[in-house]
């Protein structure tokens, strides 16, 4: 912006922007604050933003009552595993769409996305049976596969949009330099697309981390991630708010922190590579 803004105007704009942002953020903030209150002050009326009796008791109790580290570790394995596996399959596919496009490329991409529109609830029973029969039920491998397949269309699409920005001449140069397809993708395309790939990874880790249908219906204990952990805290009665808040905070904190630190990359990723 080349134009000067009067300080008064800037102050006014800043104040309104911050008010709106805080309003949007408030539920998260409130949850975190509540998690440090006693159950009594958690439901005090009128509500207290800060309470005098800070406590870590809620966390201690949630920690004792459930096996948080296992849920957490499962979340990490499922979200990172499904994303990396998805990358391995999607990078070659996106290469092909971006650099050897055919008349059907767009239809194919749209078809991939449309597989995501199938309501999961519609195929719950068959999926449940398939997972039971193949021994994938409540296994990390099964969930990694399911989450990978769920996010694969998004991964392919995002990589495709990033790859398309890379000039084809550079890949042709690699071909002239004696690179085969594998070297071309490994040594030239992938390193050049690192920022785009990073955004893709971040967004898909978050999508997988927050998935809460298959992770709940296709697990019981062994492979259950944090979404199942939080589901087990549902239907709380009255004086249970502080503990619920503590559990909620524990479920969302890892991804919230990751998201904050990688904000720049993530915003790029959030646009699915479709908006510059």
């Amino acid at each position: 912006m080349a134009r000067a803004v009067t300080p008064r105007r800037k102050l006014l704009l800043t104040a309104s922007a911050w008010s709106v942002a805080l309003l949007i953020f408030f539920p998260v903030l409130w949850t975190v604050l509540t998690s440090f209150k006693t159950e009594v002050s958690a439901v005090a009326s009128p509500p207290q933003l800060f309470s005098a009796d800070w406590t870590l008791e809620n966390y201690a109790e949630v920690w004792q009552r459930s096996d948080y580290p296992r849920f957490f570790w499962n979340s990490v394995v499922l979200s990172v595993g499904s994303t990396l596996l998805g990358l391995v399959i999607a990078i070659p596919a996106a290469w092909s769409m971006a650099f050897v496009p055919g008349t059907r490329t767009r239809d194919l991409l749209m078809w991939m996305l449309s597989t995501k529109m199938m309501p999961a609830a519609a195929v719950l029973i068959p999926m449940y049976l398939i997972f039971q029969r193949t021994g994938l039920f409540d296994s990390r491998l099964g969930l990694v596969l399911a989450l990978m397949l769920m996010n694969l269309p998004v991964i392919v699409w995002m990589l495709y949009t990033y790859f398309k920005e890379i000039p084809a001449e550079i890949l042709e140069a690699a071909r002239m330099d004696g690179a085969n397809l594998w070297s071309e993708i490994l040594y030239v395309l992938t390193p050049m697309a690192v920022p785009g790939i990073a955004s893709t990874v971040l967004l898909n880790v978050i999508l997988a981390w927050n998935e809460a249908f298959w992770t709940i219906t296709l697990t019981t204990t062994k492979a259950a991630p944090l979404s199942a952990f939080i589901a087990s805290f549902s239907a709380p009665q009255g004086l249970f708010y502080a503990k619920l808040s503590a559990a909620s905070t524990m479920a969302i904190a890892p991804i919230l922190i990751l998201g904050w630190f990688s904000q720049k990359q993530l915003v790029r990723g959030l646009t699915f590579g479709a908006v510059k």
């Binding site: 953020f25 539920p27 409130w30 939080i230 549902s234 969302i252 919230l256 998201g259 993530l266």
Partner: peptide, 24 residues
Amino acid sequence: LRILVISPFFVMPPVAASIWENLF
């Protein structure tokens, strides 16, 4: 500002729903 606005996106749906249902 961006960090504040983006935050709800990181909250997994069951947590979001339960925060709103119970706390609000």
